[in-house]
Nucleic acid binder design. Structure first.
Length: 96
DNA sequence: TATCTGACGATAG
DNA sequence: CCTATCGCCAGAT
């Protein structure tokens, strides 16, 4: 039987996930960048939705706001994860 | 189909 | 540095 491919239906969600999974350790990207890379420029908000809804196997901590701000509501955990990836974190912001 | 929501982005004060 | 407002898009009800 052919393998189930029920993971390529949701254009947006799948595309976003692929982009995030393509990130390497210590690599950062903003929601807007993810959306653009996924082929949906301007859909930064929708990207946030995907990250929040789909958790597990997805390095969401490598995604920050364009402002360099960390995820509101998870700043503590986010900061922790980033530092584990050798990323310099200044308070609730990532050091450029 | 209409309306609301949100782990956004940019600008203004 | 902070909050407020508007524009954007996709999903949920």
């Amino acid at each position: 039987m052919k393998p189930v491919v029920a993971d390529d239906f949701t254009t947006f969600e799948t595309a976003v996930r692929k982009v995030i999974l393509s990130l390497g350790p210590g690599d950062l990207i903003s929601y807007g960048e993810v959306a653009a890379e996924a082929g949906y420029p301007g859909a930064a908000r929708a990207v946030g939705r995907v990250l929040r809804d789909s958790d597990g196997g997805l390095p969401w901590w490598r995604v920050v706001t364009s402002n360099g701000r960390l995820v509101p509501g998870n700043e503590a955990e986010h900061s922790r994860r980033l530092q584990l990836e050798d990323v310099i974190v200044d308070g609730n912001r990532v050091r450029k």
